[in-house]
Every structure is written in C-alpha cells, then in structure tokens.
Design a protein around this nucleic acid. Sequence first.
DNA 1: TTCAAAATGTAGTCATTGACAACATTGGAG
DNA 2: CTCCAATGTTGTCAATGACTACATTTTGAA
Lengths: 204, 204
Amino acid sequence: MTYHHGNLRQTLLERAAHIIAAQGIDGLSLRALARDIGVSHSAPARHFKDKHALLAGLAAEAHEKLKNFISQAADDAGKDPVARYNAMGKATIRFALAQPAYFKALQNPEVHQRASPELKTAHGAYLDTVKEAADAAHRAGWNPREDTMTLFTFSTAAAHGAATLFSDMFGTNTFAHADLLALGEKVIDLVIPPHSSLCSTNGA
Amino acid sequence: MTYHHGNLRQTLLERAAHIIAAQGIDGLSLRALARDIGVSHSAPARHFKDKHALLAGLAAEAHEKLKNFISQAADDAGKDPVARYNAMGKATIRFALAQPAYFKALQNPEVHQRASPELKTAHGAYLDTVKEAADAAHRAGWNPREDTMTLFTFSTAAAHGAATLFSDMFGTNTFAHADLLALGEKVIDLVIPPHSSLCSTNGA
DNA sequence: TTCAAAATGTAGTCATTGACAACATTGGAG
DNA sequence: CTCCAATGTTGTCAATGACTACATTTTGAA
C-alpha cells in the first residue's frame, strides 16, 4: 500500500460512474467516493477542484466514449452516408442503455454551464463528428428539402430524446432491454430512413 | 404577521420554481428556500416530507401545467387532428422556453423513480392527453404505415429532446429566443408535417 | 548523485444542509 | 368551550463540500 494511489484520477472517474449508475447523479458524494476507493476525504480535490469539476471530467470522458462508439457503428455500417448516420443514431440509443452513468453525465445540463476547456473540447469533437455525418447524409439524399441546421437539430433531438427516455424507462425495470432496443431502432428509422426511400415505403 | 403562513405549500412550489430557474435544481436548498420565504427552516417539512417530495410536487404541478398548455394550443389549432398534434409539439417547446424550471422538474429522472401517487396521477394524465392526440393524428393520416407505439415514442422523444436542447441552449444566452422558437417549429414540422402531405412536399 | 520543488495524498476544521424530535400556536369540529 | 389536528418553531445531529496546513513521494536539473 503506497502513499500515492498511482492512478487516482482515472479510478475516481470509474467509481463515480459506477455509483451514478446505481444511485443517480445526486447520490454521488465526494467523501463517499473517496471512502469507497480507500483514500482520504480530500484526496479527490487534487484531481478535481470540486464536484462540478468531477462531473465535467465524467462528461468529457462520456462524450469521447460516445463519439468513439458511434464512429465505430458508422464504420460497421459501410459507406452509404445515410446508412452510416442511421447507424449512429441507433448506436446512441445502445450507448445510453449500456452506459447509463456516462450518458447521464453527458446530458447533465448543470455541467455545461461552467464547462471546463477539457469538456468543451470533448463536446465540440462529438458535435463535429455528428454534424459531419448529418451533412454527409443530407448531401446523399436524406431529406434534401430541409436545411442542414434543422435536420441536425431534428435528428440529435430525436436520438437524444429517445435515448434519455429509454435510459430512464430502463431504470424502472418495467421494460425489457430487447424491447426498448427494437423500439429505438424503429424510431431512428423514422428519423433517418435507411434506404433513401423516395415515397411509398417510407419507414418500415 | 401571523404565526401561520396561510398558503405555504403553494408558496414553496412557486419560490422553488423561481430558484430552480435561476440556479438549477441542485442549487435549490430547503433551508435557503425557507429563509427566502421567511419561515423557519423546518416549516417546509410539514408540506413536503423531504427534498424529493418537493421536487415530486413540482413535477406534478409541471405536468399539469404542460398538459393544460398543450391542450389549449391544440384547441387553438382547430379540428384537424394532425394540425392539433403539430400544435401540441410546438407548444411543448414554447413551454420549455417559457417555464424552464417547471420543464426541468418535469424531466428530472430522479423524481420519477420514487414517484408519489400525486405525481403518478399527473404524469398519467399528461401521457394520456398526448397519446390520445397522437392516436387521433395517426388515424387522420399521419404516418399511416407505422404502429402507434413507435409514432408516440418518436414524437415525444423528438419534442422533449428538442425542448430539452433548447431549454439548455437558452440558458447559455448564445441563442436568441426567437431563433430557437423558429428552429423548434421547423423541427416539429418534420416530426408531424402539418398539411398531411402524401409525398413530394414532405416537410416545408 | 543530490536535493529542491512540484505533484500527490492526509488530517483537521468550518459553514451549510437535510432530517429528525420536542415543543408552541392556531383554528375548527364536537 | 374544549380538545385535537394542522401548521409552524427551535434545537440538534450526522454528512457533506470546501478550505487550510502539513506529510510524503516523484521528478528533473545542477
């Protein structure tokens, strides 16, 4: 047992995510977190000035994880920009269900007010990734009549709205994971129809 | 100055909404709230067992306010079910911008876990109102190929997602109220195209 | 190699908070 | 009028976030 923990910052983030997943964001206490890890109650302050800074750190990490996750999903979807964007929307919902703590950290409005540079960078990178994919899908025939700002807002609002909804519903245990996933995919298919349908079969 | 405040419960809810609008949900402290109103620090406990109960009360009131607001908007929109549902979506966004505290209380996931009977009732009534309107719009020609569950989820996710997004963005003062409203209306028009277009002009 | 300074962790303290208990005041039902 | 339920007050306690002073370890430059 060394005096120095060695990797406290990362451990703090991971345990915090654990606790948030189990008890929600305001069930997280810096002191309980320190106890849980086995360091003194003020050790976390060396890495995160205050609670907001910790949540901002989590949010930054969450944005990075989500960005990587949806990028991977896009790549798995092939080359068609519309199929790629569709896959990114579905991946967002899977992420929210698989990593509820990170998704909650991501959505936490309080954090975005006093955003640290680190968070701004991660958030910006995430938004750029989504926006690029949205624009590509747009150019490839997704809703050609609309302007890109409207489409971007529409799709992110729908994807994040559905992800939030499912994430909360999943917490209540009233719905099965599989059912929520299937419903989520149908919803995303409404937002970004996969086979750029001209008319008739728009959706299913 | 009477010993009894006379209308403490309602005053608590109103001042809490004020504080939340200014400082966010976790900037709300029961004691500060009591000080603000001018009662003793434990007077609120007579009306709300704990902080969660207060937030649940706010959420219940918020659901009722939102339900009334969108119902009014639907009635103003006339008789066409699709136009009515479209108007309800737009009204949801206006509500989020006009009453940020109530909207935040409404969205607060922590509250819905240990929901009081009062909150469950209010939430249920709100959901019923929206679901009825969604089904009516569906029957009247909105996206006839999809099942009602998917459509309901899609539209509420998009509307609440956009409302949340705008509510948070408005807090940053980076965007003007009018611009957000205009963008929100375009988004809702994508979710629920107002003049039940068959094909060609789907959207604008 | 040495050693001073930076990084990291600890111990102690304080005001604030949420929750609870015991008590006081009010107003209304019988 | 009297009792009692509703409502409000004061007192208290443990937990928390934030701060300060101090201890230990690491590091890198002379």
